[in-house]
Design a protein around this nucleic acid. Sequence first.
RNA 1: GCUCCGAUAGUGUAGUCCGGCCAAUCAUAUUGCCCUCUCACGGCAAUGACCAGGGUUCGAAUCCCUGUCGGAGCACCA
Length: 467
Amino acid sequence: MRCAPNPNGPWHVGHARMPAVIGTYRERYDGWFCVRFDDTDPETKRPDMEAYDAILEDLDYLGFEPDEIYRASDRLETYYEHARELIEMGGAYTCSCSGEEFSELKNAGKPCPHRDKDVETVLEEFEDMIDGEYSSGEMVLRVKTDIEHKNPALRDWVAFRMIDTPHPRAEASEYRCWPMLDFQSGVDDHLLGMTHIIRGIDLQDSAKRQQFVYDYFDWEYPEVVHWGHVQLDDYDVKVSTSTISALIEDGELDGWDDPRAPTLKSLRRRGIRGEAIVDSMVELGTSTSDVDLAMSSIYSNNRDLIDEETDRRFFVREGTEVPLTESPPAEANPPLHPNHEDRGVREIPSGDAVLLEADDIPAAENRVWLKGLGCFEHTDDSLAYTGDDIDVVREGDVDVIHWVPAAESVPVRLRTMDGDVSGRAEPGVAALEADELVQFERVGFARIDHHESDGGEERTVAYYTHP
RNA sequence: GCUCCGAUAGUGUAGUCCGGCCAAUCAUAUUGCCCUCUCACGGCAAUGACCAGGGUUCGAAUCCCUGUCGGAGCACCA
């Protein structure tokens, strides 16, 4: 099987579907899969030189290593060879009709005057195409199919055309005569031994087009499955490389890993495992209709992977300072993980005042349990310690909330899909290493991205993963 | 205009080929309860779907027709 990306940018989430499915099938059926960059249009689908590696990185993030990597732009001579053979069999002809002219004839089911040229002339003109004797638009090589075929999409399609713009890869920059996807991909799929092809519904007619070439060569066409497009809920940004690219260009997004971008780099930075994405993609199946992938499905799969190993911490968003009175304990020691007491406890000093989230501040005279610290009653704009008897919580009339000390907490900027959130976290967070995952209790999971200096004070930047 | 394809709960999916075991599977979501010093994890329960109309048949989610809705191609893009 193959994954045949157009290297025009890093991958968005939808791109994960192909490697997820074929990578899973490879493991399940002891198969083989390659990545083949179908980079045969140096102009309108001009390859982005950085995208080749970016895509391979994304693939690695998902947890797959291709058995082989090809670039179509390295294989032009192979395509030329096959074109020559096809011409000799009378299966293709050079054509100098303009696009409009040919389109009219085609729609009327009429052949163009070039269709009956003799093989020698076609061969000569094709060599001239290869030698760059024509410029863009002057000459194409068409596959002779059935000019009266009831589906106009299949009639004498273009196999090679001239492109004046040099290919960005130095190795391919001298070529001017480029194959179209249906020819290139059709030939490669056979040559590289594909047994199964999965592709989008936009390529529904490809197999039918390529079948004509396969018939000329007497090849057997691989099994083919078409699937629809994937859209994601929870995102304002369309899942489209060009859309995302434009938003980055305009400064609407900070980059391919902006948490608001539906890209693999973004999910990775948020601390979502590639495996969770793969699991969700495989669950989507391969139906031909368009599907909506619920982000909650990815989140659920990710929680399965990270919950047990992720330590807990406190983080208070936009905290309100409340003084503590009546001598509460000086330090709280909640466990790093409730299901794994052996990992130890955190050391959180309480100090004279704590920060709480506005919604958590109890009404006057009401009690609240500061997790790890004890029970407090809201009196006179402060929280008065009333004891450490956990039974008040068990009885159900006191809520347990998270908190941080006003003095010894550390500033955190949490980057989320809905923008940045400022707050403060318990002291231990400053010592966490980049890339570590935490669960901010009652807030959600987050990935520590880096620590930065903000006017003399150290600040931690984290990316929100999911609830 | 021509040519393809599709339609099962909020989302995804099983079942459709070879009609009965489907008053429809599983996951996720939502809600409630239990567990819990988290609104995490875990356990239990509830909610919720065969696009519409005809036809064939003893019997249709499954076969046929029509319609509706949605998607795709008809590029010298991939």
